[in-house]
Amino acid sequence: MEHSAAHGPSGDHSHGGDHLEAHGSVFKRIWVPFFILFGLTALEFLIAFTMPSGLLRTIIFLFLTVLKAFYIIAYFMHMKFERIGLVYSVGIPFLFVVYLVILLLVEGGYIYNNTYGG
């Protein structure tokens, strides 16, 4: 069976052939995302120790978390280099999670006010 090394393990799909060359060096694809993740985590620790807790801190933490999730999915899980159809079919369903978060934030606020008043 013809299965040349240039085609890589993924067979003959669109970007199989130029797999290794097209997406940059190991340093750019692996170590740069690693240092970004490491830096963001260090920043989170810095904020945890220096900033008083409050809504702003919580929002900063959530933003940094989503940013870290982006780098893990895009680079480590290679999603950045997949076809756009795969990105959409895995990504769009998360709108339901966003909906659930909004729904339960509203309900949580109601429960809080109902329990503690105000």
Binding site: V97, L100, V101, L104, L105, E107, G108, G109, I111, Y112, T115, Y116
Partner: peptide, 12 residues
């Protein structure tokens, strides 16, 4: 995690 968030958010 979202239900954790709900429980936490609704507690003083």
């Amino acid at each position: 995690l979202v239900s954790y968030g709900l429980l936490r958010y609704s507690h003083e």
